[in-house]
Nucleic acid binder design. Sequence first.
DNA 1: CTGAAAGCGCTTACAG
DNA 2: CTGAAAGCGCTTACAG
Lengths: 338, 338
Amino acid sequence: MEKETRRITIDQVAEALGVSKTTVSRAISGKGRIGAATRQRVLDYIEKCDYKPNIIARGLAQSKTFNICVVMPEDYHLSDLSFFQRALVGIQQFAGEMDYDILLCIGKEEECTGLARILTNRKVDGVILLRTYRKDRQIELLQGEGIPFVAVGDTDYKGVYQVDHDQRTACRELTKHLLSRDSADVALLGGRESLMITRTRLEGFCDACRECGREVPEELICLNLESRQAVDLIVENVLNKKVRGMICMDDVICNWALQKLRQERRKIPRDVWIASFYNSWVLENSDPSVTALSFDARELGKEACRKLFCLMDQDEVPQRTILPYRMVLRESTGDIFR
Amino acid sequence: MEKETRRITIDQVAEALGVSKTTVSRAISGKGRIGAATRQRVLDYIEKCDYKPNIIARGLAQSKTFNICVVMPEDYHLSDLSFFQRALVGIQQFAGEMDYDILLCIGKEEECTGLARILTNRKVDGVILLRTYRKDRQIELLQGEGIPFVAVGDTDYKGVYQVDHDQRTACRELTKHLLSRDSADVALLGGRESLMITRTRLEGFCDACRECGREVPEELICLNLESRQAVDLIVENVLNKKVRGMICMDDVICNWALQKLRQERRKIPRDVWIASFYNSWVLENSDPSVTALSFDARELGKEACRKLFCLMDQDEVPQRTILPYRMVLRESTGDIFR
DNA sequence: CTGAAAGCGCTTACAG
DNA sequence: CTGAAAGCGCTTACAG
């Protein structure tokens, strides 16, 4: 491995050209008056000798880090990881164009020492939260620090800038789609209640029931499903209640439910409908194909990042940005036949 | 949101205590001679007024960034994402203890502009590659820069420090386990050939065949399986060749294969054995339960990070570290019955 | 249009 | 044991 060679500095460039480093700095940044000729001369030389400014030093002088922090949940399987990964790609793409990088922080719900350390160390100029919680220590921490941040997902905390897909409407429309075609009820299978996303979707479900003139079927709302065993149990339970369909808040839950239904010899969509959130590879090419909501995670990431940069630049931005979704109807709800 | 308040600096601490900032710096770092009493006095004051040194400034002075870069593949489904996430958690854990953070770089095989930018910007002190390729532009780039880095996975490039599970032996033993019990052959279903991991496992497979005194069944080695359609085709194809079992290099592939087998009404393990790599939630509680190799991704991440820190500290380290695996025998290979 | 100088907030030989 | 000073590599009022 080559010995790490010390980089050429702005001083050396200045000296070589017989100008001050102020001038070099100005040529690079484009800020401040500078003659077109000198500017070009500097730029040419820099190009030629492959000078790259030291970003850390620039950061120190400008009180910037050129990094943002992205906080990602530590779940291993309860929500689809690829959603977060895609969002990350979107964020990285946008941030990269601004010459920013991503400091990753993977953390559990209760614990945010990682984020805390990054904040006290001032290693980032802003933060994106990829998930929100009912009681959200991340948000409390960030508001306490007064650092710009954007949350993906709903929140009850005041003054939080956020971006999300229209999860509530999505869940409402999906539910209505099923309710409108049969008088029997539809069950809702979901994840942890401590997640805002769970609540948001639940609200959409309730909206739909009401709008269809039905009571919200409390006994068919099954949350906090964290394991396959739990899902198996619930599916059995729900089937006994003569339910027409089930909506799963998560592809993993849906996948488990599907397997259980198969095991119970229930025909889909004949005996029961099933639909899922997030159209991920988990259910890709499933047989029967599964009706699902489709969200563009990458676009979401980009949008969150765009908003964060506005905040960091002190630009005006709307507090809330809601992104569209698509409802993809397939066989599992009897909407398409082969 | 509160106005971002300027932090207290080392100068202010020094002034308040009537000492030089040299002394304050020494008290904090523990380097250089300093009286125990003054040291304590400084530390107490710092504690009291909650002074936190500016890490960026420290970095500039020491030519360090206190960040490492982790390069993660951009695949959406072809390998199990949770493996990488767990590895990331392990890395974060170790790095965190050293007061380092992770700069994430998600990138495709062919493309490493992200990494390139991070390197030219000198934003990290070292790099961890979470996956290696036959022709690996990341490695070429890193060796060119002469920055310390550790690769997870095998490589043909010289002088690369690497860490990995014993994938070759694992695949060999798994294959031998099947071959030793039946004279019929076993097929190998795998992912992209451009990945080193694919080759490493393939080598293990071939080792096993030879050690069992058999010819390597070229027509049963099916690589570059990237879609469900491809897997379906291959499974059909392989079944026609009177194969006794199949080994899948990936839980996703295995999952698809399982579904295809089910569709074809093949009984597992009666008609065919199936085994998988990496014991992830994708196959969790699958029915029948699936024999798989089990790797501790988190430990792998930690180990890679530990090695990277040794390199950054210029400590001696072995070039190659091989971590153990576990073979978990279950129903799908007829090793356990309910 | 250009430059000398101070500053960002630390560390670290060097001297005493 | 302690401190003044130079240095890390930039930026940016301020003067000219």
